[in-house]
Design a protein around this nucleic acid. Structure first.
Length: 345
DNA sequence: CAGACGTGGAT
DNA sequence: TATCCAAGTCT
């Protein structure tokens, strides 16, 4: 087992002498710290920085974000992915504004009840902003701890993550926020997945895996299932007023984002007309194809241009498309349409 | 618990 | 090309 006192001192000393100047480390505002943690879920620091800067400029206080409308927030979040994060955060922030007087609670039990607050966010925010002695267990920490303890349990299991969280909380020092960040930073910069820099590791002497030269055996993770492939025809329905058909996605995937109408490749024109409530010239012009890879599925899209004389509430002027939130998947295929419009004359 | 949920980068 | 990974949470 680890010798907590020495380990903690070595880790914290390393952290303070190598501390990176990240934007969210310049504030003690719990709202901003919380926002940064939401953005950092499954997302690298380098990706988050510009989004974080944009958000704290546009929504400098909790009340500003509470008062924003969801569509604007989604537009600002566009490209960051996992869009439910901002919808859940907005919901939680509105709850704080209405039921907690706009102050982020420093009561962990209350905080954990808020939407989008799980074991990681709860521990991170409550330790960094309020110095509660709670762990913040992310992918970095799971990897670091698995190697330190030569722990061969499957780290993808929630039960194992819970156990690791408890282990850390049994040895966490009073500087809990710094300690959590130090553990994550160690994983992100030294104890990396592929070629860890053990030679530079401040806690090498405490590492069981290093001792037995088995660092590469950890962490143990269950393999991910293969992505499912989906094939769609994506349609640009353009009418005589230079409007195109666009609708707000209501399913779980990309909820709230706008989408061009897409159908399984074998869907008939008649069925498409019925589904969209439009009449179409049945002559379609091929625009191009795109592939988009999600975490769990792959879209293969074929884009077609179709003319229509119809118009309904789903048609918006082409020039206004840039104002609505759209997924990267749709933007990719949309660019081909724009290229056809401007370059094909 | 297993699967859903974005996007971009590294190997 | 295929796979993994990144400051995870929800259902």
């Amino acid at each position: 087992m680890l010798q907590p006192a020495t380990f903690n001192n070595n880790l914290l000393e390393w952290y303070h002498s190598n501390k990176r100047d990240l934007p969210w480390r310049r504030t003690d505002d719990p709202y901003k710290i919380w926002l940064s943690e939401v953005m950092l879920q499954q997302t690298q620091v380098i990706t988050v920085i510009p989004y974080f800067e944009k958000f704290i400029t546009k929504y400098p206080t909790l009340s500003d974000l509470a008062g924003a409308d969801e569509q604007s927030l989604l537009k600002d979040w566009e490209g960051l992915g996992y869009y439910n994060r901002i919808r859940n955060f907005h919901s939680a922030i509105k709850e704080v504004e209405e039921n907690y007087g706009g102050r982020v609670t420093d009561d962990p039990d209350e905080f954990f009840k808020l939407k989008g607050v799980g074991p990681y966010i709860g521990g991170a925010v409550q330790s960094i902003a309020f110095n509660h002695l709670l762990a913040a267990v992310d992918g970095n920490v799971l990897r670091v701890m698995a190697r330190l303890n030569a722990d061969a349990r499957d780290t993808t299991k929630a039960s194992v993550q819970k156990s690791v969280k408890a282990d850390i909380e049994s040895m966490i020092p009073l500087e809990a926020g710094d300690f959590n960040q130090a553990l994550m930073e160690l994983g992100a910069t030294i104890c990396t997945p592929r070629t860890p820099k053990c030679i530079l590791c401040p806690v090498q002497q405490h590492c069981e895996a290093f001792k037995y030269n088995t660092v590469h055996d950890y962490p143990v993770k269950k393999k991910k299932p293969k992505k499912k492939e989906e094939y769609y025809n994506v349609y640009f329905l353009q009418n005589d007023r230079d409007e195109i058909y666009l609708y707000k996605q209501e399913g779980d995937l990309l909820k709230g984002m706008y989408e061009l109408p897409k159908f399984d490749v074998d869907t008939s024109m008649e069925n498409i007309e019925d589904a969209l409530g439009v009449e179409l010239d049945h002559k379609k012009i091929y625009i191009g194809s795109e592939k988009h890879i999600f975490t769990h599925k792959v879209w293969y899209m074929e884009g077609y241009l179709l003319h229509t004389t119809s118009s309904n509430e789903h048609f918006i002027p082409i020039g206004e498309v840039q104002n609505v939130p759209m997924s990267m998947a749709m933007k990719k295929i949309f660019r081909k349409f724009i290229a056809e419009e401007t370059g094909g004359l």
